[in-house]
Amino acid sequence: MPITLVNPLNETIREARNAASKLGTLSGKTIGLLDISKPGGSVFLDRLESLLRERHGVASVVRAMKPTFTKPAPEAVIGQLLAARCDAVIEALAD
């Protein structure tokens, strides 16, 4: 005999977003570096910033930091990166 179950899983509909298109080159671009505020983040991102500048000729690097790694970035932090009109943002951590 067939039985009918009540679906116990998440059925909340979410809109799918397409991924942003890739940059052809880093040269001349503005790159955001978002530190999630884990202990070693600045060490890692400092190195990344110098590599971006020296090897890839980025025009500028914009640094931002989340107040805590335990929560999603607040709008103020996202706004900071948006205002800088970054071509791409690298979000990173290092423990």
Partner: peptide
Amino acid sequence: QRASRIEISDDEDP
């Protein structure tokens, strides 16, 4: 929304 219903037969594993 109300949860959807899933109808399964005896030989399916709930």
